[in-house]
């Protein structure tokens, strides 16, 4: 059973896995989450701006939003991260110092915002036109109608898709290692990889993979659960009742509403 021994030593070397665990937890996980959450927050804000621009009636807003989305969705993530992380390194140094960390977050945010913008746009556009018209008919401006009624409904519809996007960002955050991070800035993948090189086997990377799964798998299932609930609704079955009951409502009102007596004036 040489080959089985080999596999266990390569992937499941328990000592190597255990040795890297504290580092994965204390440094890798923290950094992965910081990078992912920061990129998601910035991506959501930028994405909302892109989405609102994308549904504008003005071509001056719509076309730039379209081009932005096409570029950042169309390029491989690694290419964008390298171009921004290295291209703006000198410029960023004067603001953030020598660490490439902020630029990595920025690059991930730009990529995420292109996807999130499309998610928001689809959500907002799926809200029935009657909602906007009802607001306008009441005298609300376009901006108020969107802000108070249409956009909140659109966002609620795409919450599952947004969580999926967060999962994608968590995975893409591993690409930031290409920019060369300080020891304290390493995220899960880099921590695992460094340990793998030192140990001469892949077990630490497997351990890092488990960390990713611990984040992503529960989220995926949580999304599916909520997605199902959104779709099927959470209304409880009600006992049968007669629609005729409500016919009396108008007669029982405290403010007297006279019933129409048909024909009294014709």
């Amino acid at each position: 059973m040489d080959w089985l021994d080999n596999i266990i030593k390569t992937f499941f070397d328990w000592e190597a896995m255990w040795a890297v665990f504290p580092q994965l937890l204390g440094t890798g996980l923290v950094n992965t989450l910081v990078i992912s959450l920061a990129a998601t927050v910035i991506g959501v804000v930028l994405g909302m701006i892109i989405a609102v621009m994308g549904i504008s009636t003005s071509a001056w807003l719509r076309i730039p939003a379209r081009i932005y989305t096409d570029i950042f969705r169309g390029l491989p993530a690694i290419l964008t991260i390298l171009l921004i992380g290295q291209g703006f390194a000198r410029f960023a140094q004067s603001i953030f110092g020598p660490s490439p960390y902020p630029l990595g977050i920025l690059a991930l945010s730009l990529i995420a915002s292109a996807y999130i913008g499309e998610i928001f746009r689809a959500g907002i556009q799926s809200v029935e036109r009657g909602q906007l018209e009802a607001c306008r008919a009441l005298g609300m401006s376009y901006g108020k109608a969107m802000r108070l009624v249409v956009v909140p409904q659109g966002i609620r519809r795409v919450l599952p898709a947004l969580v999926n996007q967060f999962i994608a960002i968590v995975k893409d955050s591993s690409l930031v290692y290409f920019l060369g991070l300080l020891v304290s800035e390493r995220e899960l993948f880099r921590v695992g990889q460094d340990a793998a090189v030192l140990n001469g086997n892949l077990s630490p990377l497997v351990m890092a993979g488990l960390f990713y799964l611990v984040i992503t798998v529960p989220l995926t299932h949580l999304v599916n659960y909520f997605d199902n609930r959104f779709r099927t609704g959470r209304r409880k079955a009600a006992p049968p009742k007669s629609g005729l009951d409500e016919l009396d409502e108008l007669d029982e009102t405290p403010v007297p509403v006279p019933p129409l007596t048909y024909g009294s004036n014709t």
Partner: peptide, 21 residues
Amino acid sequence: KPDRLRTRIGLVFQHFNLFPD
């Protein structure tokens, strides 16, 4: 202004268009 005008003219739709949330 249209917004000002619409506060003076109420409109009720075939499909209600109430805000569901």
